[in-house]
Computed example of a mutant assay.
Amino acid sequence: MARIGYARVSTLDQDLTLQRTALKAAGCDPIRAEKKSGTSTTGRKELAIILDFIGEGDTLVVTRIDRLARSIGDLQDIVRALKEKGARLQATEQPIDTGTAAGKAFLDMLGVFAEFETNLRRERQMEGIAKAKAAGIYKGRTPSIDVTAVRALKAEGIGAAEIARRLGIGRASVYRVLDVKARQIT
């Protein structure tokens, strides 16, 4: 009956030390950690490893459920996967223990709030971008493709694949610049 710790932060410049310390104090061994966004479980290799090897009677321990998932759907999928394997989920900083009815209820409530917080953050970001665009401050990302160079190379008779290779861009980007309707292999 292992206690497996999982620590996660969203960006590379954030630190995992506090989470690792709390998980170690909670008796976790091993502790898996990663620096990935929590808005999706896609690409979170350490979490996938835990879910693959966790077994009957084991407990997945996190400091808070927002370290595990930011959407109620992902959270429920993780809890369901744990339940199917006979494992449970606990949080060190929240009264969550999927081995109890109260813990399950609290987990669902916190999951809803975590998703709500993510959606609010996204809305505020979009409002800020709209405001900056209206004020003429936000122009979007600067173009990374030299349109003139693409057209000049095409004028020399060079094909799209070779233009893409020379300029270090995707072939689809070359086609977009040239507005080629029929995508011929060149």
Score class of each variant (00 low, 15 high):
3 R>E: 08
4 I>P: 01
5 G>E: 12
6 Y>E: 05
7 A>T: 13
8 R>L: 09
10 S>D: 13
10 S>P: 01
10 S>N: 11
11 T>R: 14
12 L>K: 13
12 L>F: 11
13 D>T: 12
14 Q>V: 07
15 D>S: 15
20 R>A: 02
22 A>I: 02
24 K>F: 00
25 A>I: 04
25 A>N: 09
27 G>Y: 12
28 C>M: 13
29 D>Y: 05
29 D>F: 00
30 P>H: 03
33 A>I: 06
34 E>G: 01
35 K>F: 11
36 K>T: 12
39 T>G: 15
40 S>E: 06
40 S>W: 12
40 S>C: 02
41 T>Q: 04
41 T>C: 01
41 T>Y: 04
43 G>T: 15
45 K>I: 04
46 E>M: 11
47 L>D: 05
47 L>F: 13
51 L>K: 10
54 I>W: 15
55 G>P: 07
55 G>V: 12
56 E>M: 07
57 G>P: 10
58 D>M: 15
59 T>D: 02
61 V>Y: 14
65 I>Q: 10
66 D>G: 07
67 R>S: 10
69 A>F: 11
69 A>E: 04
70 R>L: 08
75 L>W: 07
76 Q>N: 14
76 Q>Y: 02
78 I>F: 01
79 V>C: 05
79 V>L: 03
80 R>M: 04
84 E>S: 05
85 K>V: 02
86 G>W: 08
86 G>D: 05
88 R>K: 14
90 Q>H: 04
91 A>K: 07
91 A>E: 09
94 Q>D: 01
95 P>H: 12
95 P>T: 09
99 G>D: 08
99 G>Y: 09
100 T>V: 08
101 A>D: 05
101 A>V: 15
103 G>N: 01
103 G>C: 14
105 A>R: 04
105 A>P: 08
105 A>N: 13
106 F>H: 14
109 M>H: 15
111 G>L: 07
112 V>A: 03
115 E>R: 06
118 T>G: 14
120 L>P: 07
121 R>N: 05
121 R>T: 09
122 R>P: 01
122 R>D: 04
123 E>A: 02
125 Q>H: 02
128 G>Y: 02
128 G>S: 01
131 K>Y: 11
132 A>T: 08
133 K>P: 02
133 K>I: 06
136 G>R: 07
138 Y>N: 11
138 Y>C: 07
142 T>F: 00
142 T>N: 09
143 P>T: 15
148 T>N: 14
150 V>Y: 07
153 L>P: 08
156 E>R: 14
160 A>T: 15
161 A>R: 15
163 I>S: 10
165 R>H: 05
170 G>N: 06
171 R>V: 15
174 V>T: 10
174 V>H: 11
177 V>C: 03
178 L>D: 03
179 D>C: 13
180 V>S: 09
181 K>F: 11
184 Q>V: 13
